[in-house]
Design a protein around this nucleic acid. Structure first.
Lengths: 143, 143
DNA sequence: ATTACTGCAAACCCTTTGCACGGTT
DNA sequence: AACCGTGCAAAGGGTTTGCAGTAAT
């Protein structure tokens, strides 16, 4: 079965495996990119005819609970999901719409920075989204 | 007129003044708290009978464009609006649901911290939301 | 007089839910 | 056999929009 590798990842986490779940997880894991539920659905609907958007939502929730997927609410538009174990900063380019990530350490430093200035507030989850212009688009504009 | 002070603030920014706009701005400015559009509407509907939720949304947008109001998308629930000139970090308590802010400098430090770790990405807007437990709720739990 | 804000109503997008059937363990 | 994930369809919450009348400039 083509999805073998991906089925295993689900089984290891105690997630009941189905063709839908395996494919959705595969799409996210292989691409590593950010997907709205809609985009996941568009990506798989030809390979799994009849699949419903509601199934995509339900699966994404299961994958989140299993710690395989993280989601993020950007300043505009629908939620985006990606194959990452936990919350991390996002950089959204206003020009091309692309979403990227800062250095992995940046998340930890942000956590410390905010923690130091938040009085007695105990931070459990940190959601960071920066809007701006990515390196690629800045270069095009400059040149 | 009771809203005099608030009308002026709008006029200075070139915003056409109406009773609706003055009252919505007044509610936000006097309270300093975080409001959903719904909560704004509930707060004013008795003082301005017939006012529509859509008017609240349109007014909040105008106030944002005028730089008087900032909004934020929290991890869950509808957008919240408040009388602040610009984007700033939010601390959302998982116990009481309260929203607070870290020290004012924290925003700047976060900006620097993230900027230093984001390659060529030029940050224009920074959205930060931390979920956790506020000082008050932590104390109650401990005692 | 001109411009544009409001109320009203409907539409919109994103997401969740109830139910009966079919697939997984 | 027991369980639960799926397709289907409908509802739900939050937000936006078209329009005609009215108020602000």
């Amino acid at each position: 079965m083509v999805e073998g590798r991906y089925l295993e990842a689900l089984q290891e986490r105690g997630v009941r495996t189905t063709p839908q779940r395996a494919l959705i997880w595969r799409v996210l894991a292989e691409s590593g990119d950010h997907f709205t539920a809609q985009r996941v659905w568009e990506t798989i609907k030809d390979r799994l005819p009849g699949i419903e958007l509601s199934t995509v939502y339900r699966t994404l929730e299961v994958l989140q609970e299993a710690g395989l997927v993280a989601d993020s609410r950007l300043p505009e538009g629908p939620r985006v999901f990606e194959a990452r174990p936990k919350m991390h900063p996002h950089l959204v380019c206003e020009v091309c719409g692309g979403i990227s990530h800062p250095e992995p350490e940046a998340g930890r430093r942000l956590f410390e920075t905010l923690g130091a200035g938040s009085g007695g507030f105990e931070i459990r989850e940190l959601h960071v989204v920066a809007k701006g212009v990515c390196a690629g688009c800045a270069e095009e504009a400059g040149g």
